[in-house]
Simulated assay, not measured.
Amino acid sequence: MRQLIPAAVLALTAELSAHWETHATLDSLFTYAGAPGTPPDGSKPAKAMAWLRRVNNEASSPLQVLGQIIERYMEEALDPTDRWDKDKIAERDKLLAALAASNLQYLKGGRVVGAMGTPTRTLSEFIQEGDVQSIDQEFERAIQNASVSPREAVSAASNILESVCKVIIAEEGLPMPNKQDLQSVWGVVRKELRIDPSKVEDQDLQTILSGLIAVVHGIGSLRTHASSAHGAGKTPYRLEPRHARLAIHAGHTLALYILESWKKRQAETLAS
């Protein structure tokens, strides 16, 4: 289905590209991205706006063109001296927020997709099929949202881990715990897959596995505590984007390890 660039996103993209590009680099950028036709006349803002409207009217995939246009702005938030450019970061975050408000998401590599992912397949189906690339994209969406809304990004990572555990419980016919939060479903899966540091002979692996187990408790608690003030007289927990990214990356690593352990267990069952 052909999806147009939403008006708010179109306006911000025109403003952003006109601000950071010369006429020559603007022409080059839009041509590289596959924007149809020759460069429109007028000032840089007028040119960018007219060309983006033409993309909506004439391009076979407007969101694909959009992704190529904004790729550098999304992924290169450093100035030539390798210091964080606060203006570029702020403008990138505004664009991310506009995409999210339009139920869209930027993915690394110049891709703009629906925030719900592929509509014909659910996260549970990705997990059942072992579709690691699609699961990676779910975590990538959480990462991209970390700057705009760290708490929601951590919640998304926690939800993915919960889904991984719940799918395994359902597929293996295991008893679902009464309380279906992350730590509870993880406890069932951990026991089933024998993820136990004490059973591993290598001390270095024991250390790593112990850390991964702590990740589950940390992510689950972070999602809860970051939204509360922890009682009167105490400073509320302020979750920053760097905290969210740490939790999301750790959760990603754990999710893949759980899936690989499950597949190994399935293979052993078939072989026996």
Rank of each mutant, 00 (worst) to 15 (best):
S149A: 15
L259I: 15
P119Q: 12
L12G: 01
V113W: 10
I213S: 06
R83W: 01
F30K: 05
L99E: 00
L246E: 02
I219K: 06
D79P: 01
P119L: 11
E162D: 09
A170R: 14
E21P: 00
Y32N: 06
V188H: 11
I160W: 00
E162Y: 04
Q183I: 11
G42R: 07
A157M: 06
A267S: 07
S28E: 15
V167N: 07
Q183S: 12
L96K: 14
I248T: 02
Q183R: 13
E260C: 01
I195E: 07
P80Y: 11
D87G: 14
T13F: 08
I89L: 15
E125Y: 01
A7H: 07
K166D: 10
E125M: 11
N57L: 11
M74F: 11
S272A: 03
A170Q: 13
L259W: 02
A8P: 06
H23L: 02
S149W: 03
S198D: 15
I168E: 12
G67H: 05
N178T: 13
R245H: 01
Q144N: 13
D93K: 10
I195N: 05
D93R: 13
S149Y: 04
W262E: 04
G233M: 04
Q3P: 00
Q133K: 04
I70W: 04
L78S: 10
P80V: 08
K234Y: 08
I70C: 03
S272H: 03
E125K: 08
P80T: 08
V200Q: 14
R121D: 04
K47G: 00
P6R: 05
A101C: 00
I168A: 12
A98L: 06
L239E: 04
S227C: 08
N178E: 14
A11H: 02
S61Q: 14
Y73Q: 09
K47Y: 00
H249M: 06
G110H: 09
G220V: 03
V215M: 08
E91M: 13
K264A: 08
I143N: 08
E201F: 15
L29E: 06
K179F: 08
P177H: 04
I258S: 09
E162G: 09
L10P: 05
K86V: 10
R223D: 11
L96T: 10
V9M: 08
M116N: 13
S43L: 11
S61G: 07
S102R: 02
L256H: 15
T31I: 02
H243I: 11
R194M: 10
L205H: 15
R238N: 08
L212T: 01
Q105M: 07
A250W: 00
D27P: 03
R121H: 10
L193N: 13
V164Y: 08
L107V: 04
R92E: 12
A18E: 03
M49D: 15
